[in-house]
């Protein structure tokens, strides 16, 4: 059995996906007043879920995420950013990131204990 199982690999990829999503959402907020700007988002959940269904550790480890442009337009100037929705998404994503880090840290500390290094 490898030291890092599928769950740990998936956690690592999810942390990376969540960090990328934070950047994309920050970019949406920075362009909240740019005429014609289309918002982007990263759906790392479904990409990762798809890779985990295969059960192949390599597929999970090599999962990559890319931002998708959302073609919604809210305002007359062609801008598609709703500050409230972006802020809510960002808060959710931040909490999810914290949760992922906590779970990842707990799992690593189990491994450290098993190795006799102390929690």
């Amino acid at each position: 059995m490898p030291i890092f199982d599928d769950t740990q690999l998936a956690l690592q990829r999810a942390i990376s996906g969540s960090a990328l999503r934070q950047q994309v959402l920050a970019n949406n907020l920075a362009n909240a007043e740019t005429p014609g700007f289309q918002r982007s988002d990263v759906d790392f959940h479904s990409t990762l879920a798809h890779a985990m269904k295969t059960g192949d550790p390599n597929a999970i480890e090599s999962t990559s995420f890319s931002p998708q442009v959302d073609n919604q337009t809210l305002r007359a100037d062609g801008n598609g950013v709703d500050i409230d929705v972006e802020s809510a998404n960002m808060a959710k994503n931040g909490l999810e990131y914290d949760a992922l880090i906590s779970v990842s840290k707990a799992r690593t500390s189990i491994l450290r204990t098993a190795m006799g290094l102390g929690g």
């Binding site: 909240a32 500050i83 960002m90 808060a91 880090i101 690593t108």
Partner: peptide, 25 residues
């Protein structure tokens, strides 16, 4: 402009707390 400024400050705070959480690892 002031509302958009606040939104960017919030985004920055979220990013900062995420980074410090990473260092906890």
């Amino acid at each position: 402009a002031s509302r958009a400024y606040e939104a960017n400050v919030t985004a920055m705070q979220t990013a900062k707390s995420m980074f410090s959480k990473t260092f906890d690892l």
